[in-house]
Amino acid sequence: MSGSVFHDVTRDDAQAIDDCWNRIGVLGDKSCPLLAEHIHCRNCSVYSAAATRLLDRYALRQDDREQVHAPVDSDVVTRSLLMFRLGEEWLALTTRSLVEVAPLQPIHSLPHQRSRALLGVANVRGALVACLSLVQLLDLEPGSAAASGGRIMPRMLIVAAQGGPVVMPVDEVDGIHAIDERILAAASPSGDKYTRGVLPFRERSLRWLDEEQLLSAVARSLS
Results as ranks from 00 to 15, higher is better:
residue 215 L to K: 08
residue 163 G to D: 03
residue 49 A to V: 04
residue 209 L to Q: 06
residue 1 M to Q: 14
residue 216 S to I: 06
residue 66 E to F: 09
residue 131 C to F: 05
residue 87 G to Y: 02
residue 196 R to M: 10
residue 150 G to M: 09
residue 98 L to V: 03
residue 127 A to S: 14
residue 5 V to I: 14
residue 217 A to P: 01
residue 186 A to Y: 08
residue 60 L to P: 00
residue 61 R to K: 15
residue 80 S to L: 14
residue 82 L to G: 02
residue 72 V to E: 12
residue 76 V to F: 01
residue 182 R to L: 08
residue 101 V to P: 02
residue 52 T to L: 06
residue 81 L to E: 01
residue 60 L to N: 07
residue 137 L to D: 03
residue 123 N to Q: 15
residue 99 V to M: 10
residue 41 C to H: 11
residue 52 T to Q: 12
residue 213 Q to M: 10
residue 87 G to T: 07
residue 184 L to W: 00
residue 121 V to G: 02
residue 195 T to L: 05
residue 78 T to C: 10
residue 172 E to H: 12
residue 213 Q to V: 14
residue 108 H to G: 02
residue 115 S to D: 07
residue 138 L to D: 02
residue 172 E to V: 00
residue 185 A to H: 11
residue 183 I to N: 07
residue 116 R to Y: 09
residue 31 S to V: 13
residue 40 H to V: 09
residue 122 A to E: 03
residue 44 C to R: 05
residue 99 V to E: 01
residue 149 G to A: 12
residue 192 D to G: 07
residue 153 M to D: 06
residue 46 V to K: 06
residue 31 S to H: 09
residue 115 S to R: 01
residue 167 V to E: 00
residue 115 S to F: 05
residue 13 D to S: 11
residue 70 A to Y: 09
residue 151 R to H: 12
residue 170 V to E: 01
residue 107 I to N: 02
residue 179 I to R: 07
residue 215 L to E: 03
residue 89 E to W: 08
residue 201 F to S: 04
residue 195 T to S: 13
residue 135 V to I: 09
residue 148 S to G: 13
residue 107 I to T: 13
residue 166 V to Y: 00
residue 12 D to I: 05
residue 112 H to D: 09
residue 219 A to I: 03
residue 7 H to A: 12
residue 222 L to G: 00
residue 6 F to C: 02
residue 170 V to P: 02
residue 183 I to A: 12
residue 219 A to T: 10
